[in-house]
Simulated scan of single mutants.
Amino acid sequence: MTIAILGAGVMGSTLVSALLRAGRDPADIVVSDKVTARTEQVAAQHGVRGLSAAEAIDGADIVVLAVKPQDMAALLEDFGGLVGRDALVLSIAAGISTDFLERRLGDGVSVVRAMPNTAALVDQAMSALARGRHCTDEHLREAERLLGAVGAVITLDEQHMDAVTAISGSGPAYIFFVVEAMIEAGVLLGLPRATASELTVQTLYGAATMMRETGQHPTVLREQVSSPGGTSVAALRKLEDHKVRAAFLTAMEAAARRSAELSASD
């Protein structure tokens, strides 16, 4: 099964690497980027084939669209007609709807829209899939297997993809933002930066692991840490005073709204 990955940026090259770690044959993976030097760099780095977009699409069983949203229309206008009738088209571009893709690929082409996140770099991505009108069950399963190489996968209705983008798609940025703040606080309190970083990252990892392994609601876990009159309660009071919870809600609403605007630009 030949997989053509169009777009050799962060997500495209990450997917190439993950597929190889999952046991895919390098000979079955083709990469292409509008910047020829980038195509050659990623192909040489991973030992896969680097071709032009037209050559990559020709005969591909799966075509992964990993280009920037603003480049999608031009790519499909130039090369969309080359996609085989029996091929699966998997898009990981934010805000690009299955309808947008189907209108440019022709009737009957199986399309799946996906929203992974950058944790794919360490095989811990959260990816959500939405199937197009013509997507077969087998193609959907193939998309699930492909993105399963980089982490967890769920399938849902496309109407929820803007929310997915706001929560898990952009989510790593929020976490990194919070981690930055915690590290800076450690430095402010007199800790060496390396020590503050180690304390923060391990605390984040441990808290996430607790939630996953215990299955308990985060409110329950938070209350277990928050002794009456203690340090955690004092800190949480300040976060509430500064409306941090409301700020997160507002930020995610803004992300979802921007995702919807990108879709509306069809």
Score class of each variant (00 low, 15 high):
A173P: 14
L129M: 05
V109T: 13
R258N: 10
L191F: 07
H160E: 12
L51R: 12
A254P: 14
D86A: 10
R145G: 11
A234H: 08
A185R: 10
K34H: 13
R245T: 13
Y174H: 09
E142S: 10
A196V: 00
I92E: 01
R24G: 05
D58T: 07
H160S: 10
A143Q: 04
G106S: 08
G215A: 04
D162S: 11
A93K: 00
E138H: 00
A93E: 01
T165H: 05
R131F: 01
M115R: 01
R141I: 01
S97A: 09
A43R: 03
I5N: 03
V244L: 15
H134F: 13
A44D: 09
K34M: 11
T203W: 02
R113A: 06
G23D: 05
L88S: 03
Y205G: 09
A4V: 02
R257Q: 14
G230R: 06
L6T: 03
A43N: 07
R212S: 14
T98C: 14
V31D: 02
T214Q: 07
V122S: 08
R131P: 14
S127V: 08
R193T: 13
F79W: 07
A43C: 05
C135E: 01
E77H: 10
A163Q: 00
L146K: 02
A73P: 15
K34F: 08
S91E: 01
Q202P: 15
H46P: 11
G9K: 04
E40M: 03
L146Q: 06
E180N: 14
G132Y: 00
V244A: 15
M1F: 00
L262N: 05
G81D: 02
V187T: 06
V35C: 12
D137W: 00
R38F: 02
S168W: 03
V89E: 07
R131M: 10
L75H: 04
L82W: 06
R257M: 10
A235G: 15
G169Y: 00
A254L: 04
V109E: 01
A120Y: 03
T231N: 08
G9W: 03
V64W: 03
G84T: 05
T203D: 10
I183H: 01
I167N: 08
L101P: 12
V244E: 12
A43V: 06
L76N: 06
I167M: 13
